[in-house]
């Protein structure tokens, strides 16, 4: 947090949809208009124009499930990669630190789409694993690098005295990290991890180029059969929008509860 926040309006460059602030308690918030608007529009299209749209709504839900699987699998793995690499980045061991830093620097310097192709085909050369799993691993590997920076910053935001107090009670560094530092850092990193989750949900659409039948790919399959490109991508966009809005709301509620608990 910056001290001069009161005088300057901070520019929100966060990924994900705008999360409504508690103070904007009017009936028509941007979030409500977008969320309920897109649900109403979906219903209107499905039941008002059933001959063009109903079939799309019936065809794509399989993809939603795959999108969720990829997103959830990737976020869980990415958190693990991120935690390990984040701890590595603050390690005093030069080899561990160097390896973790190299991972973060390399990954952050290559476009996600290029990495997806690369890791997917690289993995495919050495081991035979299901398409979806290798897509999940590829996504997690990329996002882990960003997560690592979140964890590193979160851990470093905990005052030095906390580690010293734990050490002076006879705890080892690992015990102090697990019992004292990480539980406190978790509260700090939860909001940015929530943002990463939403970003990952959207970026998961990239796996549609890797023979994984996610939401976008199902849409492409349908469109290429029926040539209803406009209608199909309208539905796909609306479904993505509803999902991200839903999760961003969930995350902001979680944040609020965490802050109340303090």
């Amino acid at each position: 947090m910056l001290d001069n926040q009161s005088t300057h309006t901070p520019i929100d460059v966060g990924d994900g949809a705008a999360i409504p602030h508690k103070n904007d308690a009017g009936l028509f918030t941007a979030w409500r208009i977008a969320f309920f608007g897109s649900i109403v529009l979906c219903l209107f299209l499905a039941f008002g124009r059933p001959d063009q749209y109903m079939a799309i709504f019936k065809f794509v839900p399989d993809g939603i499930l795959i999108t969720f699987k990829v997103t959830l699998g990737a976020i869980v793995l990415a958190i693990m990669f991120g935690l390990i690499a984040g701890l590595g980045r603050i390690s005093s061991n030069r080899i561990i630190n160097g390896t973790a830093s190299l991972y973060v620097e390399v990954i952050r310097g290559i476009p996600l789409l290029v990495q997806l192709f690369y890791i997917y085909y690289a993995l495919g050369r050495f081991v035979k694993i299901p398409d979806m799993l290798s897509a999940i691993i590829a996504m997690a590997f990329c996002y882990g690098a960003y997560m690592a920076e979140i964890f590193r910053a979160g851990i470093q935001s905990i005052p030095k005295g906390q580690m010293e107090a734990a050490l002076s009670l006879g705890m080892s560094r690992q015990q102090a990290m697990r019992q004292v530092i990480l539980p406190q850092a978790f509260k700090v990193v939860l909001p940015p991890i929530g943002n990463e989750f939403i970003a990952l949900l959207k970026d998961s659409s990239l796996v549609s180029i890797l023979a994984v039948s996610d939401l976008l790919r199902r849409g492409r399959e349908y469109a290429s059969e029926t040539f209803n490109y406009f209608e199909t991508y309208t539905v796909i966009a609306l479904i993505y929008l509803i999902m991200t809005l839903f999760f961003s709301k969930l995350i902001s509620l979680m944040e609020e509860r965490l802050n109340d608990g303090r």
């Binding site: 005295g161 010293e164 050490l167 002076s168 705890m171 539980p183 406190q184």
Partner: peptide, 20 residues
């Protein structure tokens, strides 16, 4: 060093209680 620290308590200027 953990063994040494087990036997020697330390009290800090800024208390350093665990807030969680």
């Amino acid at each position: 060093i953990c063994k040494v620290r087990e036997e020697v308590g330390m009290v800090f200027q800024s208390f350093n209680l665990f807030p969680h």
